[in-house]
Design a protein around this nucleic acid. Structure first.
Length: 138
DNA sequence: GCCAACGTTGGC
DNA sequence: GCCAACGTTGGC
């Protein structure tokens, strides 16, 4: 099982929207690197859901329930979607500033390459984020 | 609103 | 194939 981070602008589609829907197609990715990451996802993989823009940070988790398939809205079938199911909101969201300040998490792909919308997460990074999410304060 | 990083486009 | 110009994204 692998870990990933999927990014969304909450004004467009927030984690709360995913929780309300229960499950959604993660679509609209038009970047090769992000596409390759989507294509590598397997059913059962876990995702951190990250909000960009105002208050950037990790806000919740999700699970991959359907592996990559062509994005019906794309001209080119090589652009793919996956379906994800809402997991749990983090007890305390972890802001980007805390990722940057953390010795392990500062190395996360999303921190180093802020424009990449789908990125891999290592088990150690996942664990560290979950640890921070349980702390009452940074 | 500004700027940096990055991707894409188009001229050559 | 190179590179400058331009557009987009995201953090601050």
């Amino acid at each position: 099982m692998n870990y990933w981070l999927i990014k969304s602008d909450p004004e467009t589609y927030a984690f709360e929207d995913l929780c309300r829907e229960g499950c959604t197609a993660w679509d609209g990715v038009r970047n090769f690197q992000a596409r390759n990451n989507l294509a590598a996802m397997q059913v059962g993989d876990r995702c951190l859901v990250y909000h960009s823009q105002a208050n950037p940070g990790v806000v919740g988790t999700a699970r991959v329930v359907k592996a990559a398939y062509p994005d019906p809205k794309a001209d080119d079938p090589r652009w793919v979607n996956v379906d994800v199911q809402a997991g749990e909101p983090l007890v305390r969201p972890v802001p980007l500033a805390e990722l940057k300040a953390h010795p392990v998490l500062a190395q996360m792909v999303v921190v180093r390459q802020s424009r990449l919308s789908v990125s891999p997460v290592t088990p150690a990074e996942w664990k560290a984020v979950m640890g921070l999410a349980k702390k009452p304060r940074g």
